[in-house]
């Protein structure tokens, strides 16, 4: 009985140690934006599939590997102070690499990422229609499905569900 307990403890410890660095990365965006005034959305593969009302196959394949997507709709004070830009610096300090950065004028986009064996992680911010969002994504994205997804959107097979 004691041996079994030891084994379970070891497995729990191993799992805890494996997940802990990922949770630490997630905590960075939480620390930056969870001030009480933001709107936070948490999506998982299941919820991301749920919003696909037209059951678009490519979309489902694209999101199937996503463990978690956190989206923060930022408040006006954060947008005015441009403090959302800290998310890029914070993750770059953690070894994330730059994918796309666009800034100046009306554009503010950053996509940075880190690929590793356990899980890929992406973070950044973007502004759309006067709103600014910061995000953190953990999991794998089936990038190869993007062209066929775009074709579906062009053919209007896939209805937009975002506001």
């Amino acid at each position: 009985m004691k041996a079994v307990t030891n084994k379970v403890t070891l497995i729990a410890l191993f799992l805890g140690l494996s997940i802990q660095p990922l949770l630490a990365q997630e905590q960075i965006i939480k620390d930056l934006f969870e001030t009480g005034n933001e709107k936070k959305y948490a999506f998982y593969a299941s919820t991301l599939r749920m919003v696909n009302l037209t059951k678009n196959k490519e979309y489902n394949e694209l999101v199937n590997g996503i463990d978690k997507l956190l989206v923060y709709s930022l408040d006006s004070a954060t947008i005015a102070s441009k403090s959302y830009k800290k998310v890029a610096d914070a993750y770059l300090n953690e070894g994330f690499e730059e994918y796309i950065m666009a800034f100046g004028g009306d554009i503010n986009i950053a996509l940075i990422g880190k690929e590793n064996k356990r899980a890929n992680e992406f973070a950044g911010y973007t502004n759309m229609d006067g709103n600014t969002f910061a995000f953190y994504l953990r999991g794998s994205i089936a990038w190869e499905k993007i062209p066929s997804l775009l074709k579906s959107i062009r053919k209007e097979e896939f209805l937009t569900f975002l506001p």
Partner: peptide, 14 residues
């Protein structure tokens, strides 16, 4: 810091 200019950078990772 000049907001009149839009700056875009796409890396090799992308």
């Amino acid at each position: 810091d000049n907001e009149a200019y839009t700056k875009v950078s796409v890396s090799s990772k992308m």
